[in-house]
Design a protein around this nucleic acid. Sequence first.
DNA 1: TCTTTTCCGTTGTAAAAACAACATACTTGT
DNA 2: ACAAGTATGTTGTTTTTACAACGGAAAAGA
Lengths: 221, 221
Amino acid sequence: MKKYVSILKRTKLFSGVGDDDILSMLNCLNATVRGYNKGVYAFRQGEYIRNLMILLEGRLHIQKEDYWGNLNILNEICPGEMFGEAYIVPNSGTLMNDVIAAETSTVLFFDIERILTVCPSACPFHTQLVKNMFYTISDKNKSLVQKLRYMSQRSTREKLLSYLSDEAKRQNSSSFSIPFNRQQLADFLSVDRSAMSNELCRLRNEGMLDFHKSEFTLYEV
Amino acid sequence: MKKYVSILKRTKLFSGVGDDDILSMLNCLNATVRGYNKGVYAFRQGEYIRNLMILLEGRLHIQKEDYWGNLNILNEICPGEMFGEAYIVPNSGTLMNDVIAAETSTVLFFDIERILTVCPSACPFHTQLVKNMFYTISDKNKSLVQKLRYMSQRSTREKLLSYLSDEAKRQNSSSFSIPFNRQQLADFLSVDRSAMSNELCRLRNEGMLDFHKSEFTLYEV
DNA sequence: TCTTTTCCGTTGTAAAAACAACATACTTGT
DNA sequence: ACAAGTATGTTGTTTTTACAACGGAAAAGA
């Protein structure tokens, strides 16, 4: 468990907590670790989730496949990110999506009840942890709203532009890279790959942007 | 403030807290009340939000209008619901959407820092409040993911069917009513109203469902 | 009750996306 | 280095949606 402390100290959840305290908190919170090979399902629709999780290594995709095989990547989890927080509410039902390891991944499992119920005065960092957890889930909430904004755009062109301009703003540069290949980006935005590829090239021809692989550059008008 | 206790005791946030305790907690949490007439903007894009809010009476729509005037209702807030939780993270930037009173509304404002930082041992219900708050935001998170699922459907037909079947499941009946008129439903699903109306009638002709105004009935295959 | 406004369905047209199929460039594994 | 597999761009066709415009029904207001 010790080898993950260096990762955890950089996560939002443990921000402001010292190394030794992280270790003792992991014990206190009943944390366990599990690995998933690339392409393996970590969780499947219909399963019960009773833990809060943090991705330590690798990359996870939260996705949903409909009756006709259309795949939609609802979210991408990167190392240090927390997930599963939507299902820890008592009687919240079963998981509605699949979680698949886009790369070989390591996941940390928490007992959420312990975070929320253990007397805070017993552990000096407990208050900080609750605060961090709240900020984290609040942040995720915001990014969901953000994605909802991309998705609410009517055309593929607008979906692309809203996503790419947000990404440029987020990375603070008109040149940036995205964590998707074409098919994944199409799935993320819920559009057809070839139509999207088409639109990207059209935008390039119009001089609005340029790209090589997953590196994009946006141009002013 | 006293007159709102009967509303608050039925909210998720104050679930399990007694009347007297609610009153004292409102003081402790620096709660204030403000009213908005129907059609008035409660908040506008670009404003800073530093509070957590609960809608006491009325109905709010969280919406976004793009450059070309397309309106998208991102969410509907009903009495007892908490909102604003995505913007209380330090340095989370300004509000990205508009909040408009769909009906004349009353809103309760909290100081979020007090909830998270005041020593819990000083107030016996503090732990419960934190727990409730976490469950609430977690639940909202889930409903955002749910809406994302509707939006990720490629066609208007699929968007309608996924939303309506979810609503039927949620209300536990094949006959149910939705809180939108046609234009609002179209905005919610981010599609054209007339095209959606068209698709609804097509579905009715195919015998998959029936409707009068906002009352819907789904049929088995 | 009468008028005005809003809501809903309908139709035709133009635009856009989905789909299918293929060519080329790039990766990966051996 | 070579072969096999994957990713990306391209084109033409079909399907679907957006848009605009309108008529009737229902609701709200005077």
